[in-house]
């Protein structure tokens, strides 16, 4: 497998911040991996995800995704990068309320090209089990359905990298499981996924690699498909973190 993401000595200090959100993080993610980034609130996991997504810039260090050094890209370049390479799934879905589910899904495709992607969008939605709600507005959908719409939106441009920030955080257990099953299915089809979660069970159940963070540092990096670590070990590491 080839390397898809490389973070080199990343620090991120927010304006006014005394300590950094990220302190010298370096890691690489390979194509086809399903990586979970775990950690408590304030550990820097979402910041890390935002940097990989090109939503933010590091204070120092470099982020390279699919051969693109994000630090060298302009705002427009970063927007194109997000549009073409990244699929992002948010905790709170962030669907546009005045657009139908299908219109939400099609936004990235329509930003990219004027060629109609409607049939592709409907097919994708059917595949994700939300074909029948394509013409409904988000407010008429359940949380699970909304998150599936968000996933479909993330996938419509066939991104190189799918990023998900607490995608089950706003869902009930059943809906959360359905969304995670969907991620697993996508991973099996070869999709590279980086998942941010604070739930170790979720991380270990679906991800093949779990990176644990604390205070802006990577404190553990475990590949579960190997014999290197067992899932329980990762859980143990998580449980040994000092309470915050």
């Amino acid at each position: 497998m080839s390397e898809l993401v490389r973070l080199t000595d990343i620090t991120k200090v927010y304006q006014g911040g005394v300590t950094g959100a990220l302190n010298g993080v370096s890691l690489a993610i390979e194509e086809g991996e399903f990586t979970a980034i775990m950690g408590p609130s304030g550990s820097g996991k979402s910041t890390l995800l935002n940097l990989v997504a090109g939503l933010d810039r590091p204070s120092s260090g470099s982020v390279t995704v699919a051969g693109s050094d994000l630090g060298r890209l302009s705002e427009t370049g970063l927007a194109r990068f997000r549009r073409d390479r990244i699929g992002f799934v948010f905790q709170f879905f962030h669907l546009l309320p005045n657009l139908t589910a299908l219109e939400n899904v099609l936004i990235p495709a329509r930003l990219k090209s004027r060629v109609s992607a409607e049939s592709a969008g409907r097919a994708l939605m059917s595949r994700l089990g939300i074909g029948e709600v394509a013409d409904r507005y988000p407010s008429r959908l359940s949380g699970g359905q909304q998150q599936r719409v968000a996933v479909a939106r993330a996938l419509i441009n066939q991104p190189t990298l799918l990023l998900a920030d607490e995608p089950t955080g706003a869902l009930d257990t059943k809906s959360g499981d359905q969304v995670m099953a969907l991620f697993a299915e996508l991973h099996q089809e070869g999709q590279t996924i980086v998942l941010v979660t604070h739930d170790p069970k979720l991380a270990t159940r679906y991800a093949a690699r779990v990176i644990s963070m604390l205070d802006g540092r990577v404190i553990d990096d475990a590949r579960l498909e190997t014999t290197e670590r067992k899932p329980a070990d990762v859980i143990r590491v998580r449980s040994e973190e000092p309470s915050r």
Partner: peptide, 16 residues
């Protein structure tokens, strides 16, 4: 503003 932020997150450029 939230919609705009979402659109930017999914790839809308500043010019767009």
């Amino acid at each position: 503003i939230q919609d705009t932020a979402t659109l930017k997150a999914v790839g809308m450029s500043p010019r767009q």
